[in-house]
Design a protein around this nucleic acid. Structure first.
Lengths: 341, 341
DNA sequence: TTGAAAGCGCTAACAC
DNA sequence: GTGTTAGCGCTTTCAA
């Protein structure tokens, strides 16, 4: 059905090689150029990228495996990546593995069959087993947001400085005199969870505060999890005077729990949230929060991948660490005795 | 580098065809099966989907062109689609055109080069010009959420009954005695905007109410647009007693404007919103709203596309219209004189 | 500048 | 059941 280069060769009376050269930016006699262009129009010729890929051994496709597509943090990163990659004529095929390691592994294999030139992964499986096949295939792998210990040196990565981010928040709070600081973390064992916990503990230590297990909750990075965590935190007899919540959804959940529980922010409780996504600003405009640079994460990832693709030989794996920012709002105030009433 | 079928043929001493048959589910002698499997393991053989595509003239890729990836309504549809498509071994490559018709056209061409087997499009360009090339290429096209008049009969589609949806909302309101009903629409000329407007007008007519231009606002389907629209609506001297907002983001914006403006819902104003997305339920749990079945939209789309792919011959284009649901909340009450104070 | 020809990795007749 | 072979649409030497 569809016209091929052969068709346009016949139509123009030229050889295949000439047509090919024309499409690849080679020099062709003016006259022949016109001929070719006319034939292309006439026959609705569309180059077949698959055939080309077979020959060049480059699919110009990057596989992207993520835990969840319906997550604003993730989609904003992907948008930024796609922008850059598509400009370089790379397509991305996104696989949402629903935070299921089994699906994740299948997704990687699926993409490998399709001969993606590279793989970008926001890993669900912290062991990195799902990437074994990709490692074998020797294509560049880029981890985003979450590092995998066992793969150190074998992949590149773009992450934020999680420990520092948590430290920023907690130091802000201790600086204001708070000593009982609640922490709402994501699922245990997740890379970001651990890092943020470390940052929290370090900052407390700095301030000479002995951490209390009771102030630490795991909220699964979900709205509901954050809601529950904060409810239980507020139900303590000796409850925290300040709170640091470590992702977007949980911060939302936390605020809802506080609103519903009649806890005033910052009068009764100082709160620092996480991730300034669009919706957020609108809903809780005055929240103090730690902002991750999603745009930069996406851009850096795309550029790093492009780099990796162009320097296949060198084992040039890098870890890019982006820093976060503390956005001042009005949800934090200095600790005073009365505040805890 | 990567092993090919030839390699595993050599390794096993079998013929190419046998290997191929093995991979395509043909019957192979038990002994040879074992041989092949061993060789696959040993050589890390991974089938090359591109070569296969070249031969079979099927890429098993569906292109998806959407206006915006960072939109929860859209991503929830895509997730549902991907689930089904991937089970049938189809990949989707998603292109986010940022609501820009030029990008949209480029995206379609980009996908056509890659020889996608089908195209799913939530159209930005209402003229449908961007799909011309795809029509020429004679691949199945499926419109989602937005119909394109000029393409009637040449594409399939999955949409909701927009007019009915708006009617449901407005009838609810008129049934409760409201006669001054504000309407916040998306961008003018968009398919859904028009349909929803029609539904609104029809329902008013039914109730014997003469529509007032002043009660109709265009909010661009954005949070900000909704916010502005509602602010201006509330600033009217003779303001509406009820409000229907026609998408998720704008409903959010509307609620924020109302909260900030000190307008009580439903005491001062009855409100019906749109799209029950996860976050929403948590933030405004008691909102009465029109719910679109995103999951079904995604599933129907995937299944319809699969169908189209399998019945290439028949001109079996269909439009599937899904219905919406009115979810009762507490943001609506009967009109009383005092209410408008 | 142009053309002929080989081959990328696979499938699908067809013959054995 | 299995092997031989001819392409799929393109790129890329190599000669002309």
């Amino acid at each position: 059905m569809a016209a091929t280069m052969k068709d346009i060769a016949r139509e123009t009376g030229l050889g295949l090689a000439t047509i090919s050269k024309y499409f690849n930016g080679g020099t062709v006699k003016e006259n022949n150029r016109l001929l070719i262009e006319a034939a292309v129009k006439k026959l609705h010729y569309v180059p077949n990228e698959m055939a080309r890929s077979l020959k060049t051994k480059q699919s110009r496709v990057i596989g992207v495996v993520i835990p969840e597509l319906s997550n604003a943090f993730i989609t904003s990163i992907i948008s930024a990546m796609e922008d850059i990659l598509r400009k370089k004529d790379y397509a991305i095929v996104v696989c949402d593995c629903r935070s299921d390691p089994r699906h994740e592994k299948e997704a990687v294999e699926f993409l490998l069959h399709r001969r993606v030139d590279g793989l970008i992964n926001m890993a669900t499986d912290p062991t990195g087993r799902h990437l074994k096949a990709a490692l074998d295939a020797d294509i560049p792998i880029l981890l985003v947001d979450r590092l995998i210990d066992s793969l150190r040196g074998r992949t590149s990565a773009v992450v934020i400085d999680n420990a520092h981010a948590a430290g920023q928040a907690v130091r802000k709070l201790t600086g204001l005199g708070h000593r009982k600081i609640g922490l709402v973390l994501g699922s245990p064992h997740l890379y970001t969870t651990n890092c943020r916990l470390t940052g929290y503990l370090d900052a407390l230590k700095e301030a000479g505060i002995v951490p209390s297990e009771g102030f630490i909750r795991y909220g699964d990075y979900t709205l509901d999890g954050g809601y529950q965590a904060v409810q239980s935190l507020m139900a303590m007899e000796d409850r925290p005077t300040a709170l640091f919540v470590t992702n977007f959804e949980m911060t939302l959940g936390a605020m809802l729990a506080l609103n519903q529980g009649g806890v005033r922010v910052p009068e009764d409780l100082s709160v620092i949230g996480f991730d300034k996504l669009e919706l957020f600003g609108a809903i809780f405009p005055d929240l103090t929060l730690i902002r991750q640079p999603q745009l930069s994460i996406g851009r850096e990832s795309a550029n790093l991948m492009l780099d990796l693709l162009n320097n296949r030989d060198s084992a040039s794996h890098r870890i890019v660490t982006l820093s976060t920012e503390l956005t001042e709002g009005k949800s934090v105030r200095a600790f005073t005795e009365q505040a805890t009433v």
